[in-house]
Write a protein that binds this DNA or RNA. Structure first.
Length: 255
DNA sequence: ATGGCTACGATCCGTAGA
């Protein structure tokens, strides 16, 4: 089976592109982030025609996540507090033989800001939510935009960006608290030495110069990680007219 | 040297992303 995660940076601004990519790839499970739209504006029909069940948690202007699967979704949960939060950043459901979490971690703006503190707190609460599931041996795929590059190999200029947003020590520690619950970084496992990115700023010709960050991840619990066949970043999706600033990450698991 | 682009929602600029 194939699982994909894709920060689309507005579903309405590029619905043709995103639906077209999905039609071409047909991942069994697809996690979308940054819908920047309310659920009523999500292209439900287009995905239904491709055979997807959808759990969408949108909001006006910002954030917004969708968990799509070609199998039914069960036990859908929105957010860390049962959907009472202001920011729609998490949707969890059971599908196939997995529990899947679609994650959109806060950006965090810059170390020392209020948003940075919110980011760290949000990640801490995500760790608290995942901990009992991991402890119970639940087969998990936690997929999304974590807005953290885990190591210096995951960013284009680690020295120039030292302690900046996405690479700072507190962010890496917050991500490690999640990963160290017992997850495998699927892309890194399948590409141990490679340097590759999933996000490039629109500015400064960052994509053309390959100035990027690997901040989108698919984390798997051990039994699921044993089934890994491949993990690939689809750089082609970052090219052409009006792309998202992120590229999709796609993993293939043995049945 | 943090500016540069893009999307949104309210105007024709401010907020946010990362």
């Amino acid at each position: 089976m194939r699982i994909a995660t894709y920060n689309v940076n507005s579903i309405r601004a590029r619905v043709e592109r995103i639906v077209g990519w999905t039609r071409a790839q047909l991942p069994d499970v697809l996690c979308l982030q940054e819908l920047k739209a309310e659920e009523k504006d999500f292209p439900h029909d287009a995905f239904r025609e491709l055979g997807y069940h959808a759990a969408v948690w949108g909001q006006k202007t910002y954030n917004g996540v969708a968990l799509l699967s070609r199998a039914p979704l069960a036990d859908v949960q929105r957010g860390l507090d049962g959907g009472t939060e202001e920011q729609s950043r998490l949707v969890v459901a059971r599908t196939y033989d997995l529990t899947v979490a679609c994650v959109y971690a806060p950006n965090g703006e810059a170390p020392g800001t209020e948003k940075f503190a919110y980011k760290l707190g949000w990640m801490e609460r995500l760790a608290d939510k995942l901990a009992p599931l991991v402890a119970a041996g639940t087969p998990l795929a936690v997929c999304g935009d974590f807005n953290v590059a885990p190591t210096d190999v995951d960013v284009y200029d680690p020295d120039g960006l030292r302690e900046m947003i996405h690479v700072s020590t507190p962010e890496r520690e917050a991500l490690a608290r999640i990963v160290d619950l017992g997850f495998t970084d699927s892309w890194r496992k399948m590409n141990p030495k490679e340097r590759a990115y999933t996000f490039w700023d629109y500015r400064m010709l960052a994509f053309q110069k390959n100035r990027g960050y690997r901040i989108d991840h698919i984390y798997l619990t051990p039994k699921v990680a044993e089934r890994l066949v491949s993990a690939k970043i689809d750089r082609e999706a970052r090219k052409g007219e009006r792309p998202s600033d992120h590229a999709p990450l796609v993993v293939e698991l043995k049945a």
